[in-house]
């Protein structure tokens, strides 16, 4: 009789412990509609391509680029260190691990800024903060960073400074592109995943 009880005790413990692992329904709290609306109309969520380029070049550890285009497009071209989460798998549980890591700024990128904006609204609604959208997307990136236009002679001094920076960035991204992207991406994906798993662990 006692042996049966020991067996049943263990069985019950295993079953009860199992509930910790099977019940992964995340009870996400959502932000209030009014608040969401207020934040949608504000342009503060946009960051321009120059800032993103600068952060990449400076290897800013707080920058987390999320490419919301399809895996196919992502494979052809993306930014250094970008992580690919297609829009339709954005609110999967595994994807959500990338958000809300303290001290990081998430920047969504897509071809233009429409898809990135959608991603921003989705994640904002789930209550995540410090998320941004790269203004103009990769199209703007191409125009500004990869093929910068020389400003006309009568432009203000700041325009020349921007152009100089862009030119430097162009050399950085096109010249050292291949090995930088390869090594950078692998390294970063591993780093992010580990960090995010720790941040969201437990329940």
């Amino acid at each position: 009789m006692n042996r049966n009880y020991i067996f049943l005790t263990i069985l019950m413990l295993v079953l009860a412990t199992g509930t910790l692992f099977v019940n992964k329904t995340i009870k996400l709290k959502q932000v209030e509609p009014q608040q969401l609306l207020m934040e949608i109309v504000q342009p503060t969520r946009y960051v321009n391509t120059d800032l993103v380029a600068k952060m990449i070049i400076q290897n800013d550890p707080s920058l987390e680029l999320i490419d919301v285009r399809s895996a196919n497009e992502f494979g052809k071209f993306s930014l250094t260190n970008a992580i690919n989460i297609p829009l339709d798998s954005l609110i999967n549980e595994s994807s959500l691990d990338y958000f809300g890591i303290p001290g990081t700024k998430v920047v969504f990128i897509s071809n233009d800024d429409i898809e990135a904006d959608q991603a921003w609204v989705l994640t904002k609604r789930l209550g995540f903060n410090s998320i941004y959208v790269m203004k103009g997307g990769l199209n703007r990136w191409m125009e500004t960073i990869i093929q910068p236009q020389k400003p006309s002679d009568d432009s203000p001094l700041t325009a020349f400074e921007t152009y100089e920076f862009r030119n430097g960035a162009r050399l950085y991204f096109t010249g050292a592109k291949i090995d930088n992207e390869e090594t950078g991406k692998v390294k970063v994906v591993v780093r992010r995943k580990k960090k995010s798993a720790a941040a969201s662990g437990g329940c």
Binding site: L13, A16, K27
Partner: peptide, 15 residues
């Protein structure tokens, strides 16, 4: 606290 923790705690106490 998530429900499974309560289930586990009750199971522990009961056993």
């Amino acid at each position: 606290i998530a429900a499974p923790w309560f289930a586990l705690a009750f199971t522990f106490i009961a056993l």
